[in-house]
Structure formats: C-alpha cells, structure tokens
C-alpha cells in the first residue's frame, strides 16, 4: 500500500520533469539554453521513472520468491539507468562544443569568454 503511494509519487515527479524538458525545448531561445533543459530535466526524470520500475519489480520479486525473473528485470533496469547517467552529460558536452565551433553565438549573452579567447 505505502509502496504504491511511493511509486505513484516517483512517477508523478518523473513525468513532470520530462514534460518540463519537452516544453523547455520550445521556451528557450538558443541551443545552449535548450541543452540545459534537454539534458538536466530528462536525466532527473529518467532517474525517478526507472526507480519507480525498480521499486515495483523488487516488491514483486519479494512476493514471488527468490528465483523469479523479476530479479533480472531489476538488475537490467539499474544498468540502463547507469548507462543514461554516463552518456547524457557527455553527449551534451559534445553538442555544446560542436555548436560553438560551428559558429553559433549564445543568444542574449552578457559575457562570452570563449568568443574572446578562441574566436
């Protein structure tokens, strides 16, 4: 019962942040600020959604006994979470660097050290 409430809360948080990521891609003016929305919010939302899956499958695992296939589901969901956590910031870094080297200026910037030092 209380587990179900926790799962629903996690799902709500995860869905909210994923929606924020999708809206942020439209609200922000240029590629760098869009990267903020697209990287942080989806990573955080994914953590909560996958944790909800993990909690649910662990409770099913405990209910069904040790040798149920739920154990594999738990482990693999955690591996998928680690893969997301490792790859998401790295690809954001790559996109930001590519955008700056291909000559896109940050919109409405108050300061740009990179532009001054490496034009």
């Amino acid at each position: 019962m209380i587990l179900n409430i926790i799962i629903y809360i996690f799902i709500a948080i995860g869905c909210f942040f994923n929606m924020m990521a999708a809206l942020g891609l439209h609200r922000f003016p240029d590629v760098y600020t869009r990267l903020h929305a697209g990287t942080k919010c989806t990573t955080f939302g994914s953590i909560f959604l996958i944790l909800a899956v993990v909690i649910q499958s662990i409770s099913a695992w405990v209910a069904e006994g040790l040798s149920s296939p739920q154990s594999i589901l738990t482990l693999h969901a955690l591996i998928a979470l680690v893969a997301i956590l490792l790859t998401n910031p790295t690809s954001a870094h790559a996109i930001g660097r590519a955008a700056h080297r291909s000559g896109i200026k940050p919109a409405r910037a108050v300061v740009d050290d990179l532009e001054k030092e490496k034009p």
Partner: peptide
C-alpha cells in the same frame, strides 16, 4: 532553425525513448 538545435532535440528524444522502453518492459 540550426542543425545543433535538431541534434539537441534528437538527444532528448533518445533519452525519452530509452525510458519508455524500460516502462514498457515493466
């Protein structure tokens, strides 16, 4: 408007596809 914008969209979309696959698996 620019290629990096589309790439940001693609990257975000990929993450959401991964999460939906995990959700569908559950």
């Amino acid at each position: 408007p620019t290629p990096p914008d589309r790439l940001v969209g693609l990257d975000t979309l990929n993450t959401l596809v991964i999460v939906s696959m995990v959700i569908l698996g559950a």
